[in-house]
Write a protein that binds this DNA or RNA. Structure first.
Length: 152
DNA sequence: GCCAACGTTGGC
DNA sequence: GCCAACGTTGGC
C-alpha cells in the first residue's frame, strides 16, 4: 500500500492508538476492489512511501479489519468527500491496518525494479499509479529476503 | 459509445 | 518543477 510520507507515512501509523488506522481516501476503483473484496484479516502488507526523496518499502503492517465503507466520503467538510457515495449505497471502501514493524532497511523502488523475480509486479511497471496492489506469496517472500541483503 | 480535454499520480 | 501515464468527465 502506497502513501506519501508527508501526508500519512509509516511514522504516523506507528503513533496512532493501537498503531492502527483506517486507510481512507482511496478514490480509485481498482484499489477499492482490493480493499472491499480481496484483503483479509491477518493479511500482511508492505507500507510503501511514494512521492518522496527515496520511494520504496519502509515497513510492514497487518490488515486488522476487512473492507467497510469509507465514511470520509460522506462528509462534505472532509477532504475526501465524494457526493457519489452515501451511507445507504457506499461507493468507497477501506480497511484498517496495524503497524507491525519497520523493514530492516528501505527497499527502494529503484532496487525493486532490478529484480527479475518482481518483473510481474505492477509496482515496477512504468506509469503505474495504483496505490494498492497484490503480491503473490513468492513475490512477498522474495522481498522479505531482501531485507537482509545489501542493496544493489 | 467514442474520444478529446482535463486532472491526478508519482518518478525523476 | 516537469512530464508521462493513466483515470475520469462530458460533449456529441
Amino acid at each position: 500500500m502506497k502513501s506519501e510520507p508527508d501526508v500519512f507515512g509509516i511514522e504516523h501509523l506507528k503513533k496512532m492508538p493501537k498503531k492502527t488506522e483506517h486507510w481512507d481516501g482511496v478514490r480509485n476503483y481498482q484499489a477499492r476492489n482490493m480493499m472491499r473484496d480481496e484483503m483479509k484479516k491477518g493479511d500482511m502488507v508492505f507500507f510503501y512511501h511514494s512521492n518522496c526523496t527515496e520511494p520504496g518499502i519502509v515497513g510492514i503492517m497487518e490488515v486488522v479489519r476487512e473492507g467497510y465503507p469509507d465514511f470520509t466520503a460522506f462528509d462534505p467538510e472532509q477532504k475526501y468527500y465524494d457526493p457519489k457515495s452515501d451511507p445507504d449505497k457506499p461507493c468507497w471502501y477501506m480497511v484498517d491496518v496495524r503497524y507491525k514493524r519497520m523493514t530492516k532497511r528501505l527497499i527502494s523502488l529503484q532496487e525493486l525494479k532490478g529484480y527479475k523475480a518482481l518483473e510481474d509486479c505492477p509496482l515496477v511497471r512504468k506509469g503505474n499509479r495504483l496505490s494498492i496492489m497484490p503480491l503473490t506469496k513468492k513475490q512477498w517472500d522474495f522481498i522479505l529476503k531482501l531485507e537482509d541483503k545489501k542493496p544493489g
